[in-house]
Write a protein that binds this DNA or RNA. Structure first.
Lengths: 347, 347
DNA sequence: TTGAAAGCGCTAACAA
DNA sequence: TTGTTAGCGCTTTCAA
């Protein structure tokens, strides 16, 4: 047998954080901690009288629930881990912004991290997030290390893979087909009368989705018997990289009347290079991009590009997750949100 | 008196997460959980023999520590909350990237959130992060709601305010002076012979730091007896906003030979507008920005701007925090990292 | 150097 | 509708 633990008010050394606890709220409101807990997460189950007393005690003491304690007791935290290749990349920033906003207003905390397009970093991040017992995980793309997939399956939580819908999702995929995007833009260029189209990407070994767009490009040119030229630049995409890439193509004496860049950032760099060299876009050279970033509509000439459903991906991911949290289980395994080809003046 | 709790292996309903626990590791290694815990966080205090047994048990079972349980027991989590105005903004993305990288490789988890330049959202975020018992908080800027400041002080943890060093930090400030940045660029324009300089910002009521740059501009023109014209655009900064802003200035018949934009994004929009209208930059009009974003060096003409110490702010913030975590207490309260004026062709 | 045991602050099963 | 109580999985005294 064992003595009852001494009350907290005694003189023993306390290890606590010094923060206001639910216990103090309960005491001030004259109820049990269960009631306080209920008021905070299932308000309907408590009488108005008690609920009000609890709420005013919460206010008066400035009580902030300890999520670690809550998550530990509930065996699942109210967090969602989100892993993207790069937050420096505006594509993903738009998605994360939407997703975080929606989830956090529904009471979920988003933990996000970026992999820098490395599978090893992705694996480490997934492991780190899993240590928080998240209620769900959101990854980018469908390619992950074997161990990442194993960890994710073992966690037995909803897993959304965004920005791609090609095949073999762990649980749910929300995105669009990059292969079709690549094919779509290439077909558009062909319809516009271009015959020598070059595809320029950067670090496509690690950017799986850019590689799929290149694949779509290859299919589209092959379909009409045109030659394919794919350039894979070393180094991460940047405006600064686009100009030299075009200059190099010119210097190598490659013949071409259109360049399809794997993203708008590179395309903008190329546009600047054309301006510097007095190359007429689109009369002499068509330039197309991917992403429909902020500047695409206002640069000179306005950039023909593909608009990915950035915000829609965030919105749909949040919706799927919230539905799963609410107990809904029969959901589509893949949600293809499509994309829009923005035909502007550059091509 | 009370019965001993039944052992876990019995048939009662378990609420646990199903994950491998420290208990199982301890059992497999034939040691107590205290020893496992010690091996994991103070390896020196355990004999090599036991430590090895523990480590191989950890490996064999694929044990991942539950951070909620750890944080709860230790009364402080190994997290750092980071609050920025916007992750869509590349300035902050660079800082967060550096900061997160450094902290996470030292074993700390970064929680980040964006306020959208709203004090109310900032307050809500700070409260949400505090619920995780973070080891430290990092905010952007020195202006916060009264309640935010109160919550932060009550938490008794290191607080870093980044991107500004002007005055009155809660704990530690790491950044540079925006007033000096504004003054510096304006003086540069004056030295270059400009006499009618207009300052254009966006939503400066909520962007405190842009307002300080405008203040510096005002001081600099006043110092040489030149008139000040400050335009505060409605809506958030974007490339799309820069062109119309310039067009409007032109339409209003304002006389000017230089425009100093509160950031590069607006300046780029204006550059495109000049290109469309055939306005010669810098011969007829000088354009200057702030931020030294990716495109600033490669646009046409290359943009004269101010380079804030984006990465250095992240690096220094991480260093300060890590020093505090290590027990160091006498640290400078403000770290001014300065900035660089990048004189290029646009002004 | 190691282990036993008492919580950290909360949630949820159960009883009333 | 409410309270009682047994943990959630760890860290940290304390004693050996």
């Amino acid at each position: 047998m064992r003595a009852r633990p001494a009350p907290k008010s005694d003189t023993r050394l306390r290890r606590g954080s010094g923060r206001v606890t639910m216990d103090e709220v309960a005491r001030l409101a004259g109820v049990s901690t269960s009631t306080v807990s209920r008021v905070l997460r299932a308000p309907g189950a408590v009488s108005d009288d008690l609920a009000n007393r609890v709420r005013s005690a919460v206010d008066r003491l400035g009580y902030v629930p300890n999520l670690m304690a809550g998550g530990l007791a509930a065996a699942r935290g109210r967090t969602v881990g989100v892993v993207v290749p790069s937050i420096l990349n505006s594509f993903f920033a738009g998605t994360i912004d939407t997703l975080s906003g929606l989830l956090s207003s529904a009471g979920w905390q988003v933990l996000d991290g970026s992999t820098d397009y490395s599978e090893a970093r992705e694996e480490a991040l997934v492991e780190a997030f899993l240590a928080w017992s998240p209620a769900a995980m959101v990854l980018t793309g469908l390619r992950h290390s074997e161990r990442t997939v194993r960890l994710l399956r073992a966690a037995r939580i909803p897993v959304v893979e965004m920005w791609d819908v090609s095949d073999g999702a762990i649980d749910i995929a929300v995105g669009f087909s990059h292969r079709e995007a690549g094919r779509g833009m290439t077909q558009y260029l062909i319809e516009k009368g271009r015959r020598r189209i070059v595809f320029v990407g950067a670090m496509m070994i690690s950017d799986q989705r850019a590689a799929q767009r290149a694949e779509g490009y290859r299919e589209a040119v092959a379909a009409v018997g045109l030659p394919a030229t794919v350039v894979d630049l070393p180094g991460r995409s940047s405006v600064a990289l686009g100009g030299p890439a075009l200059a190099d193509l010119l210097a190598r004496g490659v013949e071409f009347d259109a360049v399809y860049f794997s993203n708008d950032v590179l395309a903008l760099g190329a546009l600047f290079e054309c301006q510097r060299r007095g190359i007429d876009v689109p009369a002499r050279l068509a330039i197309a991009g991917f992403g429909d970033l902020d500047f695409a509509a206002s640069c000179v000439p306005p950039l023909t590009t593909i608009r990915p459903p950035r915000e829609a991906i965030g919105r749909e991911t949040a919706a799927v997750l919230l539905a799963r949290f609410a107990g809904q289980t029969h959901l589509r395994r893949a949600v293809d949100l499509g994309f829009e080809l923005q035909a502007r003046q550059s091509a």
